Amino acid sequence: MTTTRVIMSYQWSAGNGEKPGMLGLREEVAQVANRELRENKSIREQSLQQFREWIRKNQDICSCRTDDNFLLRFLRVKKFSLPMAQQVLLKYINFRQTFSHLLYNLDYLIPSVNELISSGYMYVSPYRDSSGRRVILYNISKFDPHKYTNADMAKVHLITYEVLIEDEESQVMGFTHVGDICQASAAHATIWSPTEFTTLVRWGEQSLPLRHKEVHLVNVPSAVRYFYDLISSLMSEKIRSRIKIHECMESLWKRVDPKVLPKELGGSMPMVEMIDLWKKEISAKRERILHLDNMKLLSTKSIITRRNNQQNENSSLMINNLQGSFRKLEVD
């Protein structure tokens, strides 16, 4: 594999002596933005101006952020197609307020949420991988489904995503996910109702302005493989094609440089140190993330949907069958 250029994320910016590109990004990141997202100075400025004007005139949107950083995440995820970016923004606000019991008050200081982050259920490596992406790390053994709720799980995930997407370089380069699934069980699946889980997966992929580039899973129990086979139909083909299940750590290391991983997975920095650095990042963005709750969508009439009722019914039936199958396996 290509040698990973490992640089601490908080040092890797134009401020460390590296030449910034014309977009305010480092030159190599600006080149990726132009090549993959069709972003250049002219398109960027015109799109931002038109996006702001559309928000200003849209009477269904209240208290929406209009700073460059916020709007660019929607433009970039849709390669500067303004109509598509507008749709993602509408879906994003609607997604958050529809599931406000899960996705509002994204405060890492909530005791249960803080416990999960501090224990290492979900955190982010302070290193970028060879493709310049932040690496999101998961350890399912740290989530006790008999102690924590689906709201705790959802808040940890959304806090992570919202903090990361505040960084423009990550908006361009996207993310790599690495999950240690060794102690996953039926109880982890059944904390969700079938309908809510199905809707969250479908809506989340369409509504959150994130570029998921690679997903690597290790230590996957056979029961969870069955779970993955069933829920994969809820995901787009693009996301499914980016998921890789590894039989062993050596297989993972061929795709992800160990240097970006915690010591427990073959890296050099202990997990507790990575978590400490990650919590400092979260703390710095806490107020900004909490203020997202101010945005409201008064009507969903402008949202274009592609509904397939039969598909939704089949998805709910599939999850119901999944829960019954897990119970029969008695793996929790």
Rank of each mutant, 00 (worst) to 15 (best):
G204K: 03
A186G: 15
M173P: 02
T149V: 06
V156Q: 01
L210I: 10
G179R: 00
T149S: 12
H188M: 11
H177T: 05
T160H: 08
N139I: 06
G174I: 00
H188E: 12
E166D: 14
H146C: 07
S193G: 15
L200W: 04
Q183M: 13
V172D: 02
Y161E: 13
A189V: 15
I191Y: 11
I140Y: 04
Y161N: 11
I140W: 03
K155T: 00
G132Y: 03
D180M: 09
I136T: 06
Y138E: 09
S131G: 14
F197N: 00
R202L: 13
S185H: 13
I136E: 01
I191D: 08
A154L: 02
S141Q: 11
L164W: 05
Q171L: 05
T199H: 15
K213W: 01
V172C: 03
L158Y: 15
K213M: 10
F143L: 01
E205S: 10
I159D: 10
R211W: 12
G179H: 02
Q206C: 12
C182S: 15
W203Y: 15
A187N: 15
G179D: 04
F175Q: 01
R211G: 08
T195C: 10
V178C: 02
S185I: 09
Q183V: 06
K155N: 00
P145G: 10
R211C: 13
E196Q: 15
T198C: 11
D152K: 03
R211P: 07
V156K: 01
M153F: 15
M173L: 14
E205I: 08
E169W: 03
I181R: 02
G179N: 04
I136Q: 02
D152L: 04
F197G: 02
A187Q: 15
S170M: 09
A187P: 10
I159C: 12
K213D: 08
S207R: 00
T149A: 01
E162N: 12
K142H: 05
E168M: 06
T149R: 09
L158K: 10
L200N: 06
T195M: 13
S170D: 10
Y148L: 05
A186K: 05
F175S: 00
S193K: 14
Q206E: 15
V163G: 03
V156H: 00
R202A: 09
I140D: 03
P145R: 11
I136H: 03
Y161W: 14
S185E: 14
Q206H: 13
V163F: 05
G132I: 06
I140H: 04
W203S: 14
L158I: 12
E168V: 03
V215T: 13
P209A: 07
S170A: 12
P194V: 04
V178K: 00
D167F: 10
Q171R: 09
E166K: 09
T190F: 06
Y161V: 11
H216V: 07
M173E: 05
V172L: 07
A187I: 08
F143A: 01
